[in-house]
């Protein structure tokens, strides 16, 4: 049996706490003294600010998130990018990270291109993206996999420990978008597929203690299989 920590799961409308000293955080609301869950997820009791960490759901963009998206439309002043959020992201010419001199914007980014971008601002109607920072670029080759956005923190791990382990063991470059899109680039396809397997393992089992060691074990076993 795999060891697992006792996690408190709540459903919408369920009372989490009825003591006065607690404050309602994300995914909860206050009704009198009671703190009531508003999403289906796990309760975070690390502080007095009670939060519900959702177990499922679409990506909700925040300012500063790094995301991977696909260009789906071009207008006269920018590109519409699908970032798996409730709205489309928009990348203007000024924020595209290139000096635009040609009128035809498809010379720079075409429809179906995959872009690594950052969320500049979130407004009620639109999500503005930027590619002006270092490292933000069009992703040319590699492997794209989709995971549930709620699993992203686990895939990255504490201070990047999980993703760094997978990178090191499989000798690949991995970029994890906060929207659950992951880009893997390795020297050969075998390495990329192994990294993909490891990431899928993490996203399927997000609630196991000592997952980093398990992934390390998994990767070493797989690699030992290759040598035989």
């Amino acid at each position: 049996m795999e060891e697992e920590k006792a996690r408190e799961i709540v459903v919408p409308g369920e009372t989490i706490e009825n003591r006065k000293e607690f404050i309602a955080g994300e995914g909860t609301r206050k009704e009198g003294n009671e703190i009531v869950a508003e999403r289906f997820g796990v309760v975070d009791r690390s502080t007095k600010l009670l939060k519900v960490i959702p177990l499922s759901g679409v990506y909700i963009p925040r300012k500063g998130n790094t995301v991977i998206g696909q260009v789906i439309d071009i207008t006269f002043n920018g590109w519409f990018v699908d970032i798996r959020a409730p709205h489309l992201g928009f990348l203007t010419i000024a924020e595209c990270g290139k000096r635009v001199i040609k009128e035809d914007l498809s010379e720079y980014y075409k429809v179906k291109d995959i872009l690594l971008a950052k969320v500049k601002s979130v407004k009620t109607r639109s999500i503005e993206l930027t590619m002006k920072e270092r490292g933000l670029k069009k992703l040319d080759e590699g492997l794209i996999i989709l995971v549930n956005p709620t699993r992203v923190p686990r895939i990255i791990g504490r201070a990047g420990s999980m993703v760094n382990l997978i990178k090191k063991e499989t000798n690949t470059t991995i970029v994890v978008g906060q929207n659950g899109v992951i880009w893997i680039k390795g020297k050969n396809v075998e390495n990329e597929l192994l990294a993909k397997k490891a990431i899928e393992l993490v996203s399927e089992k997000p609630f196991i203690e000592g997952l980093t060691e398990k992934v390390k074990e998994f990767l070493e076993n797989e690699k030992a299989g290759w040598k035989k």
Partner: peptide, 11 residues
């Protein structure tokens, strides 16, 4: 709806 992670007041 709860399974989809939609914010809900109650079931």
């Amino acid at each position: 709806l709860a399974n989809a992670g939609v914010p809900m007041k109650e079931l």
